[in-house]
Simulated assay, not measured.
Amino acid sequence: MAICLSSASFSLPKHHSLISPSQFLLFTKKNSLLTCKSTNDSNEDYLLDAPVSVGDGFSFSGGKYSDEPSPADEWFKQGKYVKAHPVGGTGEKAKDPIFGLVMAGSSQSSTDLFRWFCVESGSTANPPVILIHGFPSQAYSYRKVLPMLSKKNHAIAFDWLGFGFSDKPQPKYGFDYTLKEYVDSLESVVDKFSKDKVTLVVQGYFSPVVVKYAKDNQEKISNLILLNPPLTEKHGNLPSTLAIFSNFLLGEIFSQDPLRASDKALTSSGPYKMKEDDAMVYRRPYLTSGSSGFALNAISRSMKKELKGCIEEMRKTLMDENWKVRTTVCWGLRDRWLSFDGVEDFCKESKHQLITLPMAGHHVQEDCSEEIGDIIAGILSKRRRI
């Protein structure tokens, strides 16, 4: 039995019960890591800043889980940065919105163009397919889909500004996270990845942004694949799990909580439970910089304000007779955020293909990655799959 308390970390294995007054706590330093020991002979010592295999694998200390390689480090090594979309603002140093203090250098954006983190797989000579994550998520959600598509395509997944390893400018200091800004920035980053026609795959609440971009650039798009997009009027309200980040003051506080901002936001939308290794990757941005939370807060406010209008515009676009892009809707039927009611009727009326995944939730690429990878590959090879 062991309990450790410090100003930076808290670690308590789930199988332990509360400590009794008679038990003894001893804190020692070993190799710069805090070791906790108990007085019994069960030999259950563990480290606060330790690999996930020891203790619960979670610590706020320095924004890192341990000094050993983590899944986030491994994912980062696979990617690279590309620079796209001009940085706006006045050039002043960003300040946090609560106390007005100048934020650290790691919270500042580039001075000319924003840095986008992306992971590529497959030959650049093959037709490009760009995998776009939803809100809130990361390119990491496509980690199992990328290699499946790389056999015949140049597959690319990127982090939106404000997410993952991409730049997270403080609102009013270069990027305000409006949906229009996301449309404009998407054009810049797509042009950076490829000058040829591309297939766009987008999941969730960023679908209206991608459809708006595609409407104005139909000549550049060969296929559009929407994964659980908000399509009906009922989808215009953010679920409470996301809407809470837009609240005054409370939103700023909750946006800084890595468990609420990543774990709860992802696992509450569907049937799956993340493995600890995967959770560590999604938490990393919120552990390393407060700018991730401030970005999440700003995005939530924009979504809450603009989502209904953007969904209505997306519906009109997809049903317009001038819409020429081949479009497929893939829907995880166990989505806890967006109801399936009305989705089938919309697809029939708009004459877009609908593919349902009975075991997937809102983040279909997490729940059924192999299946969605096969579906996308089939669409790209012009095989129709029902």
Rank of each mutant, 00 (worst) to 15 (best):
I221R: 06
L12I: 00
I253P: 01
L287K: 15
E120H: 07
L357T: 03
W323Q: 05
S70L: 06
M280Q: 15
F60T: 02
A84S: 13
H133L: 07
A279T: 03
L242T: 00
I299N: 01
H133I: 01
S194M: 06
S20Q: 14
G342L: 09
E68Y: 13
L33A: 11
G89W: 04
F163K: 00
Q256V: 01
A243R: 13
T232M: 13
A139K: 05
L238C: 10
I299L: 13
D112A: 12
S17R: 10
A139R: 05
C368I: 02
S6F: 03
P258C: 10
E187C: 08
V210E: 05
I375L: 15
D277H: 05
K382V: 02
V202Q: 09
G373L: 11
S268K: 05
G105Q: 12
L227W: 04
S107Y: 03
L333T: 12
K324C: 03
K264S: 09
E321L: 09
S194A: 14
V129P: 08
S59Q: 08
L259V: 12
K80C: 05
C310D: 14
Y140A: 11
F294V: 15
I130L: 11
L12F: 15
L186M: 12
S246E: 10
C310F: 13
I355T: 08
T199M: 08
R143L: 03
G162E: 02
T199A: 15
N126W: 01
S289G: 06
D67S: 13
K93G: 01
N31E: 15
V201H: 10
D45T: 00
N322V: 00
P97F: 12
P86F: 04
K37G: 04
C368R: 12
G89H: 04
K151C: 03
G55I: 00
T288P: 01
I244C: 11
V343W: 08
K83C: 03
D216F: 07
K316G: 01
W331A: 06
R384H: 11
D367R: 07
G134T: 04
E68Q: 14
P71Y: 08
W160D: 03
P230R: 03
D216C: 04
S246Y: 04
P208A: 12
Y272G: 11
D41H: 11
S291F: 02
I244Y: 00
E120Y: 07
S289R: 12
A50H: 08
K305Y: 07
F99I: 01
R383D: 09
L318H: 07
S246V: 02
R384G: 00
G236P: 00
P239I: 02
K305N: 13
L380Y: 08
